[in-house]
Amino acid sequence: MSSAPAVDSQLLCQLEDVKKSYPMGDLLVQALKGVSVGITAGEFTAFAGPSGSGKSTILNLIGCLDRPSSGRVLLEGKDVATLGDAELGDLRARRIGFIFQSFNLIPVLTAYENVELALRLAGAPEKGQREVVQEALRSVGLADYMTRRPAQLSGGQQQRVAIARALVKKPALIIADEPTANLDSKNGAAILDLMKTMNAENRTTFLFSTHDAMVMERARRIIRLADGEIVSDDAAGPAAAGA
């Protein structure tokens, strides 16, 4: 099932016949071969597929970390190609949060500071930042670990800090690249439930790239990819009804 080709202003994000290739040595690898999809605000959607299917590439494009080779990527109605480097940076800082498979916390900063950095880069006013950061950490259950450095935190705790970091600026969209891959099932489940709650409470859109069944169980929409193309797009996954 594919979305209408015309620009739909209701959509948070829209891809129109997007192709992406990048060079690997002398070869040109085609990561995406013409993908069109629309994401509405508030979705809890998983991109699934084997390695090399292009799911990470799609998230990169949606997250404005990269540009398409052809086709259009629209974010909140705006064509990403028209935005300059600085504007994209601003967009990412304020509207998009990232959660990575390997947490990617800054090792020399404390949990508090990692979250604070994200808030700073988003350009939030100085006043009241302290409270906001603390609240973010509290909401992921790490109120007592604020002064710990990543090296002093467990995998699950680190990922929670990452979530807090992604959420603290109240973004419209959170992109999570295999967030549970480095966590045990207990922590993984806890993290996912946390995200689900955020999605329910704040209407934050969550987009996942994943192999993990736990993620797919909770997703309300599953878009499957293979060889750079969408092969299926189930608007109502197994958990859809339980949203």
Binding site: G89, F98, F100, L121
Partner: peptide
């Protein structure tokens, strides 16, 4: 490199 990428992803300017 990765860490810098993350910071850039978070919106840090050049």
């Amino acid at each position: 490199t990765a860490e810098i990428g993350v910071m850039r992803a978070m919106g840090m300017r050049r």
